[in-house]
Design a protein around this nucleic acid. Sequence first.
DNA 1: CGTTTGACTACGC
DNA 2: CGCGTAGCCAAAC
Length: 146
Amino acid sequence: MALSQFHAPDPDAYNALVWLIARQIPPGRVSTYGQIASMIPPPEGVAPDAYARLSPRWVGASMRAASDDVPWQRVINSQGKISPRGSGDAVDEQRVRLEAEGVTFTPQGRVDFEIYAWDGPDPAWLRERHLLPPRSLRKKPPAKPA
DNA sequence: CGTTTGACTACGC
DNA sequence: CGCGTAGCCAAAC
């Protein structure tokens, strides 16, 4: 069975996990589609490499379908920018909401992950729900020379 | 029933 | 930093 690059095999189940995680993002902090995807194990039958390639878009689809009780404004793309979509209205609204929480944007419209990146839920919270440790959005410190 | 239309990301220039 | 590319389904029109 071919996997869709736009929707998870079981959208409803996937959405529930994405929204659950998104609701943990504190005000004034941001996460990314890819980071949230990295906390969710590949659905049954989905190979790890395929999951890594497709899941960020699945999370994007989940955010699109999210109701207003999910802080969707705190999820941006890996470049630190608000993802463009059809009507620029939603993009403007997202920026307004983030700025209202204290998030600032560079002149190029980007959010600095070094300042605003969310490190993910408490490890215990993740383990209890069979979720995985998130990949960091911050630059990895240079390898420590012996 | 054929077309259009999607909240992504890593990578190369 | 900005721009283009691959990936290749399915619901809404």
